[in-house]
């Protein structure tokens, strides 16, 4: 199903266009001349060792990490322009190692706050809570009282309420049981069928590649290998050269 969605959008406009991008964390170039283009409706999995720049790439696409050099356009908006970067942030949704939730509030209070803050439809909250199995016992539980997997699901619930055009998922399967991981995969497929584009950084290679329409191997803040699901390598750079 996801594959069909991808094929339909094969000629779609690029959602992510990065050329020679450098992004510094302090003085360290977390992205060091990265080139990447992602088209509408793709599910791209980022692979690479720790420190390869996967999380920084996701944060850059969310408009959170700085664009210090190069050209970056997300959803046809310029990452280098402060006003346009704010518009990018509103249209991107990010699931990261951090939950983006207030520990002191209940699941329901968190969802109500973030849905209102994101100008999401308040009526979307109830079905999302039910769909993520947060509707009965857990809705009145403070986030500080949730397990890691339950927190992950609560973060996902906020993201689903936002209905972002660009989904940026950093280790979305981490901390989830098998059912939870299956659920994330279903959610990603569903999002793409409804017009979203998905970028996933994951160490759960098998599961992530089942989802992917493309796999991008990163190291040293650059793209090394860019492969579509049929295993054809579009670009290979010499590891030593990077």
């Amino acid at each position: 199903m996801v594959e069909d969605g991808f094929r339909k959008k094969a000629d779609a406009a690029p959602i992510v266009e990065l050329s020679g991008v450098i992004s510094l964390i302090g003085r360290f170039p977390a992205l060091a001349g990265l080139d990447l283009t992602i088209n509408d409706g793709e599910i791209v999995v980022l692979r690479g060792p720790n420190g390869a720049g996967k999380t920084t790439l996701l944060r850059l696409c969310a408009g959170l990490a700085p664009l210090n050099d190069g050209v970056g356009r997300i959803m046809d908006l310029d990452l280098g322009d402060r006003v346009q970067r704010r518009r990018i942030r509103r249209q991107a949704g990010m699931l990261s190692q951090q939950t983006f939730l207030y520990d002191e509030l209940t699941v329901e209070e968190n969802l109500q706050f973030w849905a209102t803050a994101n100008r999401a439809d308040p009526e979307a909250i109830e079905p999302v809570l039910d769909r993520l199995d947060l509707g009965r016992r857990l809705r009145t539980v403070k986030v500080s009282g949730l397990s890691t997997g339950q927190r992950r699901r609560a973060s996902l619930a906020v993201m689903v309420c936002r209905r972002p055009k660009l989904w940026l998922l950093d280790e979305p399967h981490a901390g989830l049981d098998r059912a939870g991981r299956d659920f994330v995969d279903d959610l990603v497929g569903h999002a793409v069928r409804f017009g979203a584009t998905v970028l996933i950084a994951s160490h759960d290679v098998e599961r992530a590649e089942e989802l992917a329409t493309r796999t991008v191997q990163m190291a040293g803040g650059r793209v090394l290998v860019d492969t579509n699901t049929r295993g054809e390598s579009d670009r290979q750079e010499d590891l030593d050269a990077s």
Partner: peptide
């Protein structure tokens, strides 16, 4: 805590 400042930026408040 837990990156909420980033989430506020992304919400566009």
């Amino acid at each position: 805590a837990d990156g909420n400042l980033d989430a506020l930026k992304m919400a566009g408040l």
